[in-house]
Design a protein around this nucleic acid. Structure first.
Length: 258
DNA sequence: AGGTGTTTATGGATAA
DNA sequence: TTATCCATAAACACCT
């Protein structure tokens, strides 16, 4: 059944839960993380219903951010001034929604406690050596990638889900060009990543590959090349802090997508 | 004081 | 029918 267009909601209540609305907001942002007020703004921009009674629904939304494991609170770096923390999706929660539809969750996402603790520990520790500056993060061109993450609002409003599944299945060609270690980009070694391609949602088949690892940066051992939406990420914390260079990602994209 | 974040409680809706 | 998901209210802590 085709999904209704954005405009058809008008001022009536959209059929999405607060978790869905928040996930849309986060995933539609360039860096896949937003402050609380930016999440509010996204929802009000896209759904006129939420321009009223702000105190009520915003209380509910804050409850959802805290209560649900699928949302990760990311401390701001010193170069990211502003109120409160930033919010991102937990990297393990990609299959939470059925076929990328936000109308109802497949199941409640419960994080692996040990993994989440580890993530939080690394996130809140001294990151300045391992992380690229936000100005270094270059999103891959979406049209070129030909793929839309199920969380993206384009997939929820005005697009039929079948087209999404079709583009998901276009992954086949072997990968011939790999990105370099992000910590090497501005220094001499410029080594190639070791790792494997991980699809963070269940509708996309996974293709494994390996190459030699970067020995220059111990903290980046066990590289994981993750694709989230139109961007490629490396490392456990990649969705939050670093991407491969745009040129490498574009080459990789061409290798994967027809 | 107002914004942000955490937690508990309650009840309706829907899936299993 | 039971379990789970979800919306809402509200108390409270913390911070600027």
């Amino acid at each position: 059944m085709p999904r209704p267009l954005r405009n058809s909601y008008g001022s009536s209540k959209p059929p999405y839960s607060y978790i869905s609305l928040t996930a849309m907001a986060i995933q539609s942002s360039p860096h896949k993380m937003l402050s609380l007020s930016e999440i509010y703004q996204f929802i009000m921009d896209h759904f006129p219903f939420y321009r009223d009674n702000t105190q009520r629904w915003q209380n509910s939304l804050r409850h959802n951010l805290s209560f649900n494991d699928c949302f990760l609170k990311i401390p701001r770096r010193p170069d990211q001034p502003g109120k409160g923390s930033l919010w991102a999706m937990h990297p393990d929660c990609g299959a939470m929604f059925e076929n990328g539809s936000f109308l109802r969750r497949r199941k409640r996402f419960k994080s692996d406690r040990e993994r989440t603790t580890k993530l939080a520990k690394i996130i809140t520790s001294d990151r300045k050596d391992t992380l690229m500056k936000s100005s270094d993060i270059t999103p891959v061109d979406a049209a070129r990638a030909g793929f839309k993450h199920p969380f993206n609002i384009e997939n929820l409003i005005g697009l039929d889900i079948k087209s999404v599944q079709h583009s998901c299945q276009a992954i086949s060609a072997p990968i011939t060009s790999l990105p370099t270690c992000p910590s090497c980009v501005n220094s001499s070694p410029n080594t190639v990543l070791a790792g494997y391609q991980t699809n963070l949602w269940s509708t996309v088949p996974s293709t494994a590959y390996f190459t030699k690892s970067c020995s220059q940066h111990e903290h980046l051992n066990n590289y994981e090349l993750a694709r989230v939406g139109q961007q490629f990420y490396t490392g456990d914390l990649a969705p939050f802090y670093s991407t491969v260079p745009a040129t490498a990602a574009a080459a990789l994209t061409q290798g994967i997508f027809r």
